[in-house]
Amino acid sequence: MCIVFIALQQHPDYPLIIAANRDEFYARPTQSSHFWPQSPTILAGKDLKAGGSWMGITRSGDIAALTNIRDPSREQPSAGSRGALVADFLTRPRAISDYCRHLRKTVNQYNGYNLLFGNYQQLAVFNSHTQSLQQLAPGFHGLSNARLNTPWPKVTRGTDALANYVKHSNNLYASEIFRLLADDTPALPDQLPDTGVSKAWEQRLSPIFIRTPEYGTRSSTIIMISKDANVDWYEKVFPSQATSARQNVESHHFSWKIQHK
């Protein structure tokens, strides 16, 4: 998962909206979102190489989503798969404070990441580089490959677009949120962050929706949870080397009412 936008308690009908793109190498084998047979309360996609996931939710409203922190100077080739953290939390959901302690104990086992986790009523983001935990306050948030709400052009662009749509719409539609996730506008050269990769790669990675010959946005996912605790999970899966965010798309929709523990 490369970018996540969140609207928390900003619409009277949908107190939680999460919209996210997963960016990955096309060669990495992936299974689209489904209820896992071995853990049937979990809805998530699956990384078929390492067995973890990038984003998921349980029937009782526990949520986890992952973004990598981009810093090549600190990459460890032998580190574990960060997607295991999403699977671990969703398999055995814990209080935010308890799981934060676990994350701090295991932080050296993984390359840099942000983990958004909690339940639909209370979410937090753990940053592994700073080992800090930030509770999400009501409002609009953006998370990419740095800290929460770091004002990279694509983070600001997507957060502002979600805020504008949610604030000015009585009725919300996933199709409109998918539209903002499909924004492939690159950042201007003088606005690019410096994360340790070449300027050419910074430019390729600067849109919300990424397309390069070998790497790009593999899927877009939206979670909309209503005031009545109804969950709608929408997913679009894009083919390798997609020429457009709207061509040859595989779509999935799951809906249910949260089952309280």
Rank of each mutant, 00 (worst) to 15 (best):
S226G: 03
E176K: 11
R179H: 12
N108E: 13
Q259D: 15
D23L: 03
M224W: 01
L8T: 11
D13M: 10
D98T: 14
Y113H: 07
A146I: 05
T185G: 08
S198C: 10
N127I: 04
K154E: 02
H253C: 09
P213M: 06
S255H: 11
H168E: 14
S240K: 11
S81W: 05
T243S: 10
P15T: 09
E24F: 08
S97V: 15
A174K: 00
R104E: 13
G196Y: 08
Q9G: 11
R104L: 13
D190Y: 10
G196P: 08
L148W: 00
H102T: 15
K227D: 15
F25L: 12
S128M: 07
L66Y: 05
N21S: 09
T159N: 07
S244F: 06
I96P: 07
R70I: 14
L66F: 06
N111H: 04
T58I: 11
Y26A: 06
K167C: 10
S128A: 10
I69G: 01
V107R: 12
I69N: 02
Y26D: 04
D23C: 07
L136I: 15
P29T: 09
I96L: 14
D183G: 04
A229V: 11
W256G: 09
V249I: 10
G45E: 00
T217Q: 01
A64L: 06
E24V: 10
R22A: 00
S251D: 04
L136V: 12
S33M: 05
Y173T: 13
C2Y: 00
F35P: 05
R92Q: 15
T156Q: 13
W54C: 08
P193K: 04
T159C: 11
F35V: 07
G139Q: 05
W233Q: 02
I18N: 03
D23E: 11
M224R: 04
P29D: 08
W54P: 01
F178E: 00
R246N: 14
Y215P: 03
Y110A: 01
A242V: 06
A161R: 02
W54H: 04
I6H: 09
L133W: 02
L143A: 03
I208A: 02
G83V: 02
S219T: 01
H11P: 06
A124K: 06
G216E: 01
G216F: 00
E176G: 03
V231E: 00
S219M: 02
S251C: 05
R94A: 14
V237I: 07
S169G: 13
P186W: 00
S220T: 02
V86F: 07
S73M: 09
L90P: 01
A84L: 14
S97H: 10
Q109D: 15
F89V: 08
S220A: 11
P12C: 10
Q122K: 15
Q135R: 14
A163Q: 15
S33V: 08
P29M: 11
L180R: 00
S198P: 03
E235H: 00
F89H: 03
S206W: 02
A182D: 06
A50N: 12
S33G: 15
K167T: 11
G51N: 12
A200F: 06
T91E: 14
T130K: 09
D47E: 06
K236E: 04
A163F: 05
T150F: 12
T41I: 14
L103W: 02
